[in-house]
Nucleic acid binder design. Structure first.
Lengths: 230, 230
DNA sequence: CGACCATTTGATATGGATCAAGCGATGTGG
DNA sequence: CCACATCGCTTGATCCATATCAAATGGTCG
């Protein structure tokens, strides 16, 4: 069953509140603005499951506040994070009938939920909506491709890339407040927490970043980070 | 300019030849069958460039015969392969205006070429075509996600997965004739040629495969390979 | 037959994993 | 309000899988 175990409160009434999203990043906003018109809000507490791998993919989700991770657990117990999702971003849209990953709230989060069938039906009548669905998947593909390229690089490059990606997506140029743990970062980048931690202190030593608190990263020299990325 | 440097012969006349593709793997066939109706054929010699990274993505391609690799070269000279494409499979469809990867013929190949604008225009009138474009990208996403998961596993697991993937896509259950070099495989899996070679001999020792010729792999014990994958 | 290129095999080096403490912040019960 | 338990993070020591460097072998084509 969908999310009955872990959700903590529901407000099934739509309550529009449109036009809040910046005109920038038009692509993502496109699908997601449409969703505002049709969705129901739900709240999830920290670490609550939003959906599980192989569950029917009947809904599409948008983060209103908080943060979300998708992930897979391997036989050997290791976990790989599929992606992080932040306010304004959508997740959980599948072409097939089942979710490919599980999804959890990283923090207490408010999530907008829309029936996938509603979007797909709309796409049959409206070429613009059809293009939005395609765009969403294409963007997801780009992100995963970029990360695939990353997974063959050094730990330092991976962590530098991660910080820049987060800074970009959390729209914070100077400093980032990371909502996720070191373990989450490690499982995202295919490293161990020890290596992530060591690499961060290493970047601090190089004066590329500062770490006043473990989850508050000041980007002291973004250019140096960028060069590591390439 | 598009492919004028390296193509060796052109046959711009469509020449339909439909309904050759098996009814299986309907998803891929869908977009690709449509393409048969509209495309022009071109021939590429071994290692010829089909398109380059950042070139305008005005065309979509389908392999008629031969094999194709897409790839990126990093600053440090290393190469990562984005994907391999075999007869009946399409590649090069982008949402944005530029190709994200370069594409080369692995072998002498015949490629069907279709204007992207034709497909996109068709999608505006035909929801079915719109869904095909989306499906194509969604399938590509699934493949890359699977490979992303792979890149954090051991060399043995990666090579085992590779062999099974190739066996599946080249529709050969018993044995595979690999069109690509060890270097191609290495750059696909994020390994070195030495590690790929060693891992193959290791699998041979374990009696999981046989290697009568370096590019002809007999899958002696697919279950053992599968267990490695997971 | 000889040259060249792809592949295998061998010896060594190394980046990141693993194993193991220590430390600092946060929260809880007395 | 403080002592202590817990959890997340950092740091240290060692190990190991894969990279790197180097050479031998095999296969292909002129």
């Amino acid at each position: 069953m969908l999310m009955q175990t872990s959700m903590s409160a529901v407000a099934p009434r739509p309550a529009p509140e449109r036009s809040r999203t910046a005109p920038a990043r038009a692509g993502i906003a496109a699908l997601v603005d449409q969703m505002d018109l049709m969705g129901a809000r739900m709240s999830f507490t920290r670490n609550a499951e939003i959906y599980g791998e192989n569950e029917p993919a009947d809904y599409v989700y948008k983060v209103v506040s908080g943060a979300v991770r998708t992930y897979k657990i391997f036989d050997d117990g290791r976990r790989q994070i599929g992606g992080f999702y932040f306010p304004g971003e959508a997740f959980g849209l599948e072409l097939g009938d089942e979710h490919e990953f599980s999804a959890e709230a990283i923090d207490n989060s408010v999530i907008l939920v829309v029936k996938r069938s509603a979007l797909v039906a709309l796409a049959d009548r409206d070429p613009d909506m059809a293009r939005k669905l395609w765009s969403f998947t294409a963007r997801e593909l780009q992100r995963v491709q970029k990360r695939m390229l990353l997974l063959v690089k050094s730990a330092e490059e991976r962590v530098a890339y991660f910080l820049l990606e987060m800074a970009g997506r959390l729209q914070s140029a100077e400093a980032v407040d990371l909502p996720m743990s070191r373990q989450d970062i490690a499982d995202y980048l295919g490293l161990t927490i020890e290596t992530v931690s060591r690499t961060l202190t290493q970047l601090e030593t190089k004066a590329a970043i500062a770490l006043p608190k473990s989850r508050h990263v000041v980007l002291r020299n973004p250019k140096a980070l960028n060069k590591l990325d390439s």
